[in-house]
Design a protein around this nucleic acid. Structure first.
Length: 542
RNA sequence: GGUUCCAUAGCUCAACCGGAUAGAGCAACGGUUUUCUAAACCGUAGGUUCCAGGUUCGAGUCCUGGUGGGAUCACCA
């Protein structure tokens, strides 16, 4: 089959498109979806990896909504646990009462500073201990273990191997500040007033900081769960599982599920002391979500290092015969690497979210000033423009790549506004906008007229716009905003070619002019629509 | 080591779930502005789609094996 569609056909398509606007087939009509994304820890500020998560999660929610789904944007804040207690202890010991106000530091950064401080002090304490007779004795014991033999075979230096291998053990059994942290966590769980007050104060600082970052990223949530409220959930479901035989009890009283028939392992769901583990909370929270929303699907936007975890979670829910188990989907995205390699907090190569946003916006300002096309714009308009361009560049850079894939963040490339970038597409939009503005000012008609002929560049625009709604459907079905980024980019590129080859506003023939103006307007609408699904704005001028 | 994901131009990524001559951007080189914004447009160069087999009329795409890399394999979250 090899048929070429006639110009008449495409002109009909164009006419419908102009008359009806953008119509996305509502493939999600009547279906409710809860999308969990962001899910930060409150002990550290956000970094580049979190930006990918947030931008991806928000964009995907917009895409679902555009497809007719009823969407609940959901954040689960990890606000309790051992890591927050570390920040608290460090702040108490070495903080001298420092606050965001007194230091001028953004709250999340201030708390992060003390988390780092704790780790530093802990490392020192640990290094000292390793030299004590006790530490050396443990090293000797380690040397005879099977673990150690593996390291020796690999050629890893045995002292080093021991240091990383024994770290948790040291923290739990020997460390002085480790003990303080654990005591603090215990007190928190017992509801100790002083500890709770400090926890609330420091989390409050973090939330203020996160709010600012979220606002700048343009993301938002309909429902926020806090782990401090949900961490005890799941215990009743452990009982359910025991009753139904899905779970079993070991001699020490701990509760497990055997997933070996499904190619996985045995997994603990409750400790011998009756406390729950991470996955237990997730089981409980899934159930809470279902009772809150009765959703058809629930999606977790979480990095691919948790692939195994979500496989286990879904399987457990199935074994518990939960009706919603099949609706679970892990939107597993790849890590963001830097040109120097992986981001590692220990080596200080983590790209801070706030700093990064500042940088790209500053770059947008510099570029814009260099080009000098913004005469007559107010200070406020300029500030908004730089923000739209810089944040657009950053978000687009992260969204144009297939969500599933690991990607490379090259700072140099991300602030280069040529080619396949948001500013390129935004520029295309402003070109269209300025033509339409001029048309209005000179009283030229923008109404669609079917022309006698159709140029190749015009047809390309129609073809691309015609496939846009399909791309929006595909982005939802494939959990992949990049399909929209690509569609919009292709369209912008085609428009620039059209713009270069054909005069639009200056055409004598009123019909041709009307057609081209209407076509241009439709392209502009499509760009704007697509970008809004990516959470990116478009400027009027640039 | 077990499980799992990945490998496409010098670099970063596409390729509409198996279709025709594998496409963009960046980087390199050359060109385009008295005409609606040159953050643009056009051209040149750049490929044994990691390797070896297999399935198929047809494979970057599916299967097997290998090589290289990531993730994971906690009574952490």
């Amino acid at each position: 089959m090899n048929l070429e569609l006639s110009n008449d056909y495409w002109l009909k398509v164009a006419k419908n498109r102009v008359a009806n606007g953008i119509t996305i087939p509502a493939i999600g009509k009547g279906k409710k979806v809860v999308v969990e994304y962001s899910s930060p820890n409150t002990n550290k500020p956000l970094h580049l990896g979190h930006i990918r998560n947030n931008v991806l999660g928000f964009s995907y929610c917009e895409i679902l909504a555009a497809n007719g789904y009823d969407v609940v944007k959901n954040n689960l804040v990890n606000d309790r646990g051992i890591h927050i207690c570390k920040s608290m202890i460090a702040w108490q010991k070495w903080g001298n009462g420092e606050t965001p106000e007194s230091s001028g530091l953004k709250g999340d950064h201030l708390v992060g500073k003390y988390y780092v401080e704790f780790e530093k002090k802990f490392q020192l304490e640990y290094a000292d201990w390793l030299q004590t007779s006790q530490g050396l004795a443990q090293l000797e014991i380690f040397k005879t273990s099977n673990e150690a033999k593996k390291y020796i075979q690999e050629g890893t230096e045995i002292g080093k191997a021991f240091k990383s291998e024994y770290k948790n053990n040291y923290f739990n059994n020997h460390s002085a500040i480790g003990a303080e942290v654990k005591t603090t966590l215990q007190k928190w769980e017992d509801g100790d007033e002083a500890v709770i007050a400090l926890w609330k104060k420091m989390n409050g600082w973090v939330y203020n900081g996160f709010d600012a970052t979220y606002k700048r990223l343009g993301v938002s949530f309909d429902k926020i769960y806090y782990e401090s409220d949900t961490y005890l959930l799941g215990k009743t479901m452990v009982q359910e599982g025991l009753a139904s035989g899905a779970f079993f009890t070991k001699d020490d009283g701990s509760v497990w599920i055997d997933l070996t028939d499904d190619g996985l392992d045995k997994k603990i769901v409750q400790r011998a002391d009756g406390t729950s583990v991470y996955i237990t909370q997730d089981i409980g929270t899934a159930d809470l979500k279902y009772s809150d929303f009765k959703m058809d699907k629930f999606i977790y936007v979480v990095g691919n290092e948790q692939d195994y975890h979500f496989k286990v979670l879904q399987l457990i829910l199935k074994k518990l015969n939960k009706p919603y188990a099949d609706g679970l989907y892990h939107l597993s995205y790849g890590m963001v690497d830097l040109p120097e390699g992986k981001m590692k907090s220990r080596e200080g190569t983590v790209v801070d979210a706030d700093e990064l946003m500042d940088e790209v916006v500053i770059t947008a300002r510099k570029q814009t000033e260099e080009l000098g096309k913004t005469e007559g714009m107010s200070t406020q308009e300029l500030t908004d423009l730089y923000e739209t361009l810089g944040m657009g560049a950053l978000k687009y850079y992260l969204l144009k790549v297939d969500a599933k894939k690991r990607m490379m963040y090259d700072p140099k490339e991300s602030i280069d506004f040529q080619g396949n970038t948001a500013p390129f597409i935004q520029y295309t939009y402003t070109r269209i906008n300025s033509i339409l503005r001029a048309a209005k000012e000179t009283g030229k008609d923008i109404t669609y007229v079917t022309p006698m002929t159709l140029a190749a560049e015009e047809k390309d625009l129609i073809v691309l716009m015609n496939s846009y709604p399909i791309a929006v459907n595909a982005a939802a079905n494939n959990y992949n905003p990049s399909e929209i980024a690509n569609a919009v980019y292709e369209l912008a590129k085609a428009f620039n070619k059209f713009y270069h080859e054909h005069v639009i506003l200056g055409v004598e023939d009123e019909d041709v002019r009307g057609f081209r103006l209407a076509l241009s307007q439709a392209v502009g609408d499509t760009i704007k629509h697509g970008f809004s699904l990516l959470g990116i704005g478009v400027p009027q001028r640039m």
